Every structure is written in C-alpha cells, then in structure tokens.
Simulated assay, not measured.
Amino acid sequence: MKWVVKFTDQDFWRIGLIRENPLDVIINGLNTYDIHWFNFTDKDFEADPFIFTLNSKDYIAYEIFDYSHGNGKIECVDFNGKRYDFFENVNKIVGHKSFPFIFEEENELYSIIETSDLHEISLYKFNGIKFEKIKTLLSGGKYIDTCIKKVDGVFYLFTSTSDEPFKQKLFFADTLLGDYQPHPCSPIANDKAFGRNGGPIVDRDNNYYRICQNCAVTYGGSLKVMHITKLSKTVYAEEFFKDVMPVAPFSDGIHTLSYWGNMTVIDSKNILSKYSNIYRKINYLAMVKFGKEIPYFSK
C-alpha cells in the first residue's frame, strides 16, 4: 500500500566533492570522476551542500536533518568535519532551514537560506564571525531553493514556493539590496522535471546554466541543466542542455550541485526501507506540529 511505503521508505542523503569545474562535471557526467564522499554525522540527511572559501580555508554549508530531531537546520564544517557556528543566528529561529545558497559580492560573503515557514527571502551577510540578517528581499510567499545571479550589473533572483515548488519565478533588481521586481517572463518554468532549483547558476565564458531538480519520477531523482539563452530585464529564454544522473554508492537520486571556483559538491541519496521509520516519521510530524525541536549538537 502507498501509505505503508510512504512511512517505511526513507531518503538517506550524503555529500560528495569533485575537484573540477562544475560545467566540466555536468558535461562529462559523474561517472567520469573520483568522488570523495563525506560522512560527517549519523543523521538521515546531509544534503543541499554549498561550498565556499573564507580566508583560504574551504567550508561546506548544508542541511542537516534527522526525523528524531524535528526540523532541519544549517550545519557548516570544513573538509575534515570540524564544525563552525556560522549559522547559529538563523538556526535559533524555530522552523525548517535548508538550501544555504552562499555567494560573494564586492568581496563580501552573503547567504540566502531557505526559511519558507517565515514567508520571506532574507539576505544574510557574514560579519566575520557569523551570518547575520541584513534585509528581507521578498515577503508573502513560502519561498524555497532561492539563488541570485548578477549578470551585466543586474541581480536576478530565481525561486519557487513550497505551495508550487515546480513553478520557477524570476525577479530582478539593480542592486543586491534593492527592490526586487517580478520579471515580465516570470514564471520561467512550470514542470516537475525542471521547475525547481537544484543549485546556483553556473557560468562560464558568458554562458549561464540553471541547475534543476528532476522530480518527474521521484523526489530528487536526477538533475536537469538548462542553458539560459536570453537574459535581460525584459526577456528570458532557456533550453535543455544536459542530464546529471546519480552514481553508486548513492544511486537513488541527486538534487543539488553547487560550486566555488573549480570545486564542485553534490548530494546523492539511497532510499532505505525499514518499519521503524513508521514511528520515527509520526513522531517527527508531531514535533513539527507542536514546534518542538531537539538540538543536533550540544554545546
């Protein structure tokens, strides 16, 4: 029965590192590369990875989630697994956190974190110790999987909502902190195969590529990459470019590909089935309903 499978099956996500340019990874396929798989914790999800470099040190920010703890939070580690409290401020807010998109603008480090239950897109800036909220960019929607790309001096914001996760919306502003306006071509996609973001916009040689979660068959089954052929304040067009398929030992799905320079990180999953998940998932739903959260790590 479908409801039994829903409660017994569980996604188990882990993060992989490839020390190559993301576009090369997309073109050549994951099978081409020696992927270094991390296993930072024993939790159910280590997913939505975003890599960044700060003071010559490399970090991975990602969603950590386990049914026994309640809502997902943002974890940050170096490649050796040492933890950093860069996202402590946002993690203190009750609710689910994921997709910690990180980018650099004018030598400053910023992050947009998925906080859909707050009905807003907030911009966080690294103050030398932690990411702190500096502005709400959009409000009034349950925004998910948001990223920003600066092209020809214009900031383009790509997002969807948990109500309509596969309807990709596009906004733009003349400054990072400016007022974001709906693009006249928005929504730019409305399809389970390529309507939901799966990472930041990839660019090389003035060509831009949108990473999409392909959920046509199963959640996070693979990635589709769309080549953006036209992008301005008035026009937008994209066309299919490449599929990115998961590989062993996590061959049941992939739903994020992000990068920093010539380092690429992905997440991939195995689907595990066990009857103990019935209790764990029911307990999780109760925790979320009553706003209960158990910290992932003790101080």
Rank of each mutant, 00 (worst) to 15 (best):
residue 42 D to F: 10
residue 236 Y to R: 06
residue 155 F to L: 10
residue 296 Y to F: 15
residue 265 V to F: 03
residue 58 D to K: 13
residue 153 G to Y: 05
residue 103 F to G: 06
residue 283 N to V: 12
residue 257 L to N: 07
residue 36 H to P: 00
residue 220 G to Q: 07
residue 182 P to I: 10
residue 101 F to P: 01
residue 233 K to L: 07
residue 94 V to E: 08
residue 245 M to A: 09
residue 14 R to D: 00
residue 279 Y to L: 14
residue 109 L to W: 10
residue 213 Q to H: 08
residue 262 N to G: 01
residue 266 I to P: 02
residue 182 P to R: 09
residue 30 L to F: 08
residue 20 E to I: 03
residue 217 V to T: 11
residue 254 I to S: 05
residue 125 K to H: 14
residue 38 F to W: 04
residue 271 I to E: 05
residue 184 P to H: 06
residue 296 Y to K: 01
residue 74 I to S: 00
residue 74 I to C: 03
residue 234 T to K: 12
residue 83 R to W: 09
residue 250 F to D: 05
residue 218 T to F: 13
residue 201 I to S: 01
residue 254 I to Y: 06
residue 166 F to D: 08
residue 186 S to G: 06
residue 168 Q to Y: 09
residue 65 F to K: 11
residue 265 V to Q: 06
residue 60 I to H: 04
residue 100 P to R: 05
residue 241 F to N: 01
residue 44 D to A: 12
residue 108 E to Q: 14
residue 65 F to D: 01
residue 139 S to A: 12
residue 33 Y to R: 02
residue 90 V to Q: 10
residue 274 K to P: 00
residue 56 S to T: 13
residue 94 V to G: 00
residue 268 S to E: 06
residue 12 F to S: 09
residue 263 M to A: 09
residue 265 V to G: 02
residue 43 K to I: 05
residue 16 G to R: 03
residue 42 D to M: 09
residue 128 G to D: 04
residue 171 F to P: 02
residue 118 L to Y: 11
residue 178 G to H: 10
residue 162 S to D: 13
residue 102 I to K: 10
residue 269 K to S: 04
residue 161 T to F: 03
residue 7 F to I: 07
residue 86 F to H: 03
residue 85 D to V: 00
residue 6 K to M: 11
residue 298 S to H: 13
residue 116 S to R: 09
residue 286 A to C: 11
residue 25 V to A: 03
residue 189 A to R: 13
residue 113 I to D: 02
residue 105 E to I: 06
residue 63 E to I: 07
residue 5 V to T: 14
residue 136 T to K: 15
residue 220 G to W: 08
residue 68 S to V: 08
residue 9 D to H: 14
residue 3 W to F: 14
residue 31 N to W: 02
residue 235 V to Q: 15
residue 20 E to S: 12
residue 288 V to K: 11
residue 187 P to E: 07
residue 248 A to Y: 12
residue 93 I to N: 01
residue 213 Q to P: 02
residue 67 Y to G: 02
residue 16 G to H: 07
residue 231 L to W: 00
residue 253 G to C: 04
residue 14 R to G: 00
residue 106 E to W: 03
residue 262 N to E: 13
residue 121 I to F: 01
residue 47 A to K: 12
residue 193 A to Y: 09
residue 166 F to W: 15
residue 287 M to I: 02
residue 64 I to Q: 06
residue 3 W to I: 15
